[in-house]
Simulated assay, not measured.
Amino acid sequence: MPRPPLTPAEYWDLYKPYRGEGEQPAPSAERFEWTQFPGHGPGPELLGTPRTVLELGSGEGADAVHLARRGVQVTGVDFSAVQIARARRWWSHVPGVTFVHADVCGFLMSEATEYDAIYSMWGAVWFTDPEQLLPLVAKRLGPGGVVVFSHAEPSPGTHGAQQMHGKWLEGRERELTVLRWQYAPAAWADLLKRSGFAHVDACIVPPPGDEPLGTLLVRAEVA
C-alpha cells in the first residue's frame, strides 16, 4: 500500500537533513539577508529600528538570533517541532530571543502582543494563504509597524497556490503536498492594501551575475 504524502509539518521536520558526523552544529548567525545570494541585496535596515520583532517561519533561528544580538526582542514561530527544538538547543544562551512551536495563523489569532515589525525570510508567508495571513499580521502590528517578506521570484504565469512537485529526500518514496503562494509584485501589493497596509513596495531583486532566479521582496506599513 502506498504511503500517504508528506504533510507540510513533516516536510519542514525533514528540511535540511544533517549529513555530517556527531552533533549537528549551529548555523551561522552573522548574516541577515533577504535574497538567496550571500552579500547581495538589502539587509535588516528594511525593518527600520524596531524594539520588538516577530519572525514567521523562523526555522533554525539564525536570522532571529542575528537581530537579537543587535538588541531587538525577537519571537520566532515555526510549526516544525524539529526545527524549533534545534533552535532552542543552539540559541538558548542568547538573550532577547524566544522560539515558539505553533502554526503562524493560530499564533497570530491567539496572541494579543503587538510588534514593531513582522517578517518572513523565505518562510511562512510563502507557504500560507495570504488572504488568511495578511489581515492577522496587520492586527499584530503596532502604529507605524512594518511587514517585510521575501521568497523566490514567481515563475512566469503563476498566480496563487502552487503545489511543490516531485519526490524529496534521498531514498524516500513519499510525494510532497506543500503549497507555495506565487504572485507577481503588483498582486502582492493589492493583497496587502486590501488587508490593511499602505506604502507598499513590492519588487523583484535581480540575481547577481548569470544566476537565473531573482528574489521577490515586499515591504509595507500598517495603515
Results as ranks from 00 to 15, higher is better:
S80Q: 11
T158R: 10
A9K: 11
G61I: 09
L217D: 02
H40P: 13
R31K: 13
W126D: 13
I118A: 08
T158A: 10
P25L: 03
S150H: 05
W91A: 02
E60K: 15
A85K: 04
F149G: 05
Q73K: 09
M121E: 09
P42M: 05
W34C: 11
L136S: 11
M109S: 15
D116S: 06
W168M: 10
L14Q: 04
T113K: 15
T7N: 10
M1C: 07
A198T: 15
T128E: 00
G61S: 09
E170D: 11
G76P: 02
R89Y: 02
G96D: 08
P156I: 03
E33D: 10
C203I: 08
E211M: 09
G106R: 14
G20P: 05
W34A: 12
G76R: 00
E114Q: 13
S80C: 12
G61L: 08
A64Y: 04
E221R: 15
H165Y: 04
E114R: 14
A152E: 09
W91F: 15
A189H: 09
D78T: 00
L213T: 13
H199R: 11
G41P: 05
E170W: 04
D129V: 07
D63C: 06
H159S: 11
L216N: 10
S92L: 08
A9N: 05
P50G: 09
D129I: 05
A189P: 15
G106T: 13
Q163P: 13
A68M: 06
E221D: 05
P212Y: 11
T128A: 01
R88I: 00
A186E: 14
H199D: 15
A187N: 09
V137A: 02
A26M: 14
Q163L: 14
E153M: 01
A29G: 14
F197C: 11
A26N: 11
R89W: 02
E175W: 05
W126V: 06
R194S: 14
F107Q: 11
